[in-house]
Design a protein around this nucleic acid. Structure first.
Lengths: 143, 143
DNA sequence: TTCTTAATGCAAACGATTTGCAATTGCATT
DNA sequence: AATGCAATTGCAAATCGTTTGCATTAAGAA
């Protein structure tokens, strides 16, 4: 389901190079992340992984997400609501519009907003290390 | 410490009107919130309250924060890092710049950014219900 | 002052995530 | 292909922030 035409990064190669073992659970999780365009949480990933290999544990999902995050392979998001959600790090930076009714996430990017953010931080004497812009929305009813 | 010259809202009156009892713990917590300009978390509020009346419990702090949030008296923020942080709701809408080294929070507002957000959501067919813009920053070293 | 009920403190429950540990398994080595 | 060992796993228990059940206390109306 991954429509991104961009070069799919070869995380297995990168992991090997980092001396990290390519295990069965990791292969499966990597495959799941590569096959989706949505922003699943650990439990969803765990369930999708369980369907492929029922012996995988939730701990391993969490540990793998942390590993991949450390490698820069995925991004972790703390949208409203309990669980962290993850997305593959391929592609450029973007912000998120969250449909509060469905949980759907739409990615967007605004160079103008980013520039304004930089300007604000600079005026306050700060450098932005990272930022978070989330629009919690409801579908506009036509009319 | 509250520098806000704006009318300090009388939450006790409002609570009374809503049929909510003005208890000793609530008085103390309200006083703490009114006396600060920072964004304390529940534990900090609990500790400040304990210094005034050591019998206050953390549960009551949480319950009171929820009550006040429901009244619109405070806003709850989920900045990076475990705990929720609170601020008095007086004043206009603003976003936050968080100093990742000290945890300090600076409030700012950009009409331009807000307008751009609206534009983006509109183009995607959504109405913004609420949003979140947080800049995680480090003090610029002079040079 | 009495009375009713909301509010409290405590401890236990909670949901998401992390961790200790013994058992397993990549994989570099023979 | 067999060996060895550290990295990784699954499991259960622990952790962290927050919420909740319940018996007790105390607002505040009568």
């Amino acid at each position: 389901m991954n429509q991104h035409a961009n070069q799919k990064p070869d995380y297995e190669r990168e992991m090997r190079r980092a001396g990290v073992r390519i295990t069965r659970p990791r292969k499966i999780i990597l495959q799941i992340l590569g096959d989706t365009d949505d922003h699943p949480d650990a439990m969803e990933i765990f369930q999708r992984a369980s369907a492929i290999d029922s012996s995988i544990s939730l701990s391993t999902v969490y540990r793998t997400m942390k590993l991949l995050e450390g490698m820069g392979a995925i991004h972790r998001h703390a949208f409203d609501g309990g669980r962290a959600r993850f997305e593959q790090a391929s592609g450029e930076h973007h912000d998120h519009l969250i449909d509060i009714d469905t949980g759907d996430v739409i990615e967007f990017h605004s160079t103008k907003i980013e520039a304004l953010q930089e300007e604000i931080a600079r005026e306050l004497g700060y450098d932005i290390m990272h930022h978070r812009l989330e629009l919690y929305c409801r579908k506009r009813r036509k009319g």
